[in-house]
C-alpha cells in the first residue's frame, strides 16, 4: 500500500516536471520581454513556430540538435519582427503579439500541409531524431534504496537533456537578471526608460537584446514540445501554454523563481487532472476536468484583481519609448 502510494507520487512528480518544462522556458522568455518593457502575448506563437521548425528540420536532417538550432533561429526571427514593430516602429505591443500568434498558427499548418502532406502535422520522428531520456549515473543502482533512491531514479533521473537544461536556466536567468550589468539595465529600462536613456544607454538596443533572449528561450520551449516531449509537430500543439506561462509570470510577480514555482504548480494541476478523471473524491465527488484546467486562469484573474495578493507589472511595460528630440 505504502509502496503503491510512493510509486504513484513518483510518477506524478515526474510528469509534473515534464509538463512544467515548456511553461518554465516560456515564462523565463516572457520575463526578459516584460522586464525590458515589452508586453509579450506572442510567446504562444513563437513557441508554436519553433515547434514546427524543430520537428521539420529534425525530420529532414535526422538530428534533434539541428532541429533545436532551427527552432531557436525561427523563434528569434519572430522576436526580431516583434521588436521591430514594438521598439523601432513603436507599434501597439499587444497587437504585435497577437499578430505573431495568428501568423504562427496559420503558417505552421500551411507549410506542414504542403511540405509533409499529413494534414498539417509533420511525420512522426524516429527515436534518433528526438531528445531521448537520459539515465543519470547510479540511477539503476540507487533505485533499490527506499524513498530517496526511488525518487532519484524516478523523478530526478530519466528525463531528456532539455529538462535538465531548463532546470539550469532558472538560476542562470536569475543571475543574469539580478547580478549582471545587463540585468540591472534590463530591469531599469522596464521601469524607467528615461533614466536609462539619460545615462547614455540605448533603450532600443536593450529591448532588442531582451527580445532575442525571449526568442531563444521560446525556441527551446518549442523544440521541447515537438522533438523531446512529443515526436512530431501537430497543429496548435502549444495549446495555450504561452498564455499559461504568461499567467505564471504574472503569478510570480515578474520574478524568476516565483514564476517557475507557479509553472510547477500549474504543471502539477495538469498532471493531476489526467489522474483525477472520473475519480470520486471523498466529500467532493467527481471534479470535472475542465474545473482543474480552468484553475490557473481563474487564479490569475483573482490575483490581478488583488483578491489574492497583488501583482504589479514593470511600470513601463506596454509603453513604447519615444526619445525626446
Amino acid at each position: 500500500m505504502m509502496d503503491d502510494a510512493l510509486a504513484q507520487a513518483v510518477s506524478l512528480l515526474a510528469s509534473t516536471l515534464r509538463l512544467a518544462v515548456p511553461l518554465v522556458l516560456a515564462a523565463l522568455a516572457g520575463l526578459f520581454a516584460e522586464r525590458s518593457g515589452v508586453v509579450d502575448i506572442g510567446l504562444e506563437g513563437k513557441m508554436l513556430a519553433a515547434a514546427f521548425a524543430s520537428a521539420a528540420v529534425a525530420h529532414v536532417s535526422g538530428s534533434p540538435w539541428m532541429g533545436l538550432t532551427a527552432a531557436v533561429a525561427v523563434s528569434c526571427a519572430l522576436a526580431g519582427v516583434h521588436a521591430y514593430a514594438c521598439v523601432t516602429q513603436r507599434g501597439n505591443q499587444v497587437v504585435a503579439g497577437m499578430a505573431i500568434n495568428v501568423l504562427a498558427a496559420g503558417t505552421t499548418v500551411v507549410l506542414a500541409y504542403a511540405w509533409f502532406n499529413e494534414g498539417g502535422n509533420t511525420p512522426a520522428l524516429p527515436d534518433p531524431a528526438r531528445f531521448r531520456a537520459i539515465e543519470l549515473p547510479l540511477a539503476a543502482a540507487l533505485s533499490g534504496v527506499p524513498v530517496l533512491g526511488r525518487i532519484y531514479a524516478g523523478v530526478v533521473s530519466g528525463h531528456n537533456i532539455l529538462v535538465y537544461a531548463a532546470a539550469m536556466l532558472v538560476p542562470l536567468v536569475s543571475f543574469v537578471v539580478f547580478r549582471t550589468r545587463f540585468g540591472l539595465r534590463l530591469r531599469a529600462v522596464g521601469e524607467n526608460p528615461h533614466a536609462v536613456d539619460t545615462a547614455g544607454i540605448s533603450v532600443s538596443w536593450l529591448r532588442y537584446r531582451a527580445m532575442f533572449a525571449c526568442g531563444a528561450l521560446c525556441g527551446i520551449a518549442g523544440a521541447y514540445l515537438s522533438t523531446a516531449q512529443g515526436a512530431a509537430f501537430q497543429r496548435e500543439m502549444t495549446a495555450g501554454r504561452g498564455f499559461l506561462a504568461l499567467a505564471a509570470l504574472i503569478f510570480g510577480k515578474w520574478m524568476p523563481v516565483p514564476a517557475v514555482l507557479a509553472c510547477l504548480l500549474f504543471a502539477f494541476a495538469d498532471a493531476l487532472q489526467g489522474r483525477l478523471q472520473g475519480v470520486e473524491l471523498p466529500g467532493i465527488g467527481v471534479v470535472p476536468v475542465q474545473a482543474i484546467q480552468a484553475m490557473p486562469y481563474l487564479l490569475t484573474v483573482l490575483l490581478l484583481a488583488g483578491f489574492v495578493g497583488r501583482a504589479v507589472a514593470p511600470k513601463a511595460s506596454g509603453v513604447p519609448y519615444a526619445k525626446e528630440k
Binding site: 519582427v81 514593430a85 514594438c86 516602429q89 507599434g91 501597439n92 505591443q93 497587437v95 504585435a96 497577437m98 499578430a99 505573431i100 500568434n101 495568428v102 501568423l103 504562427a104 498558427a105 496559420g106 503558417t107 499548418v109 500551411v110 500541409y113 504542403a114 502532406n117 498539417g120
Partner: peptide
C-alpha cells in the same frame, strides 16, 4: 497542397501591417 489555414496567415499579416506596423 493549399490548406484553408492560408487565410489565417493573411489574417496574421493584416494584424501585423495594419495594426502593429
Amino acid at each position: 497542397t493549399i490548406n484553408r489555414d492560408l487565410v489565417i496567415v493573411i489574417q496574421g499579416l493584416v494584424i501585423l501591417f495594419c495594426g502593429a506596423l
